[in-house]
Design a protein around this nucleic acid. Structure first.
Lengths: 121, 121
DNA sequence: AGGCGTTATACTTTGGCAAACATAACGCCT
DNA sequence: AGGCGTTATGTTTGCCAAAGTATAACGCCT
């Protein structure tokens, strides 16, 4: 047992991981979740509502990702059947898959570091 | 070369790492730097000034760390020679060393993930 | 043609939090 | 005793990012 950190595992390694783009933050856990919900709901507004996020904020995030990436991650249509909608592009689906994997490796790293806090020297 | 991320290495994995304590954030890169400067300057106020941080904020951070840890990380004296001062305790020095190492492993992880963005599949 | 739900974008308001300000206490030192 | 630089703590101010409000355009569908 480690001397510094208390016996009841009250200390844990936490963190945030994201990909920084040419202009701005490009993709983090929040944007990832938004992309996933756009994929399942077929619309930015429904994805935003599910996350308790304003449509404006969601749209700004999508815009930030689309303008930074070589190819847009989300394709949109204003008007049409059901008023329009949005979907992931090929590049969008690929970005989701890659960042999910990166995030999983990060969570393994954090679990490892938390364990290390309590291992005897 | 990867299809998603542009040719000029404009995308990089970034992140923040910290140790969450029983009540609150316990130790991150900002608090670490503060502790290190307390060690070298011998005072909270000088450490804060070096970092462009208000004394109050620095004191609040020290207080948060001292109350969460089993033993205080920083010992202080109000009044006395030169008005008083502050120093790292044994536990404080140990916390600095351990978190420095954790942060170094994290930076290696980030460099690895950045490289992975550009490796061919 | 008009309705609907969506995307698209500008403008205004608000809330939370960091910074600034203020004050007291402490204990050596001259 | 009084000054000094520090710790210790409460209160106020200000800022800016987030949220909210408003409006327009789009294109299927009845």
């Amino acid at each position: 047992m480690h001397e510094l950190f208390a016996e009841n595992q009250a200390f844990r390694a936490h963190g945030r991981l994201w990909i920084e783009g040419p202009a701005d933050r490009f993709l983090g856990i929040g944007r990832l979740e938004l992309l996933e919900r756009i994929a399942t709901t077929g619309s930015i507004s429904r994805a935003a509502k599910e996350m308790g996020m304003s449509y404006k904020k969601a749209w700004d995030l999508v815009s930030s990702m689309n303008t930074q990436a070589r190819q847009p991650l989300v394709s949109t249509q204003a008007g049409g059947a059901h008023g329009g909608g949005a979907a992931l592009t090929e590049a969008g689906a690929q970005a989701v898959a890659e960042f999910r994997a990166m995030q999983a490796r990060f969570e393994a790293f954090l679990a490892d570091e938390t364990a290390r806090l309590y291992e005897s020297k």
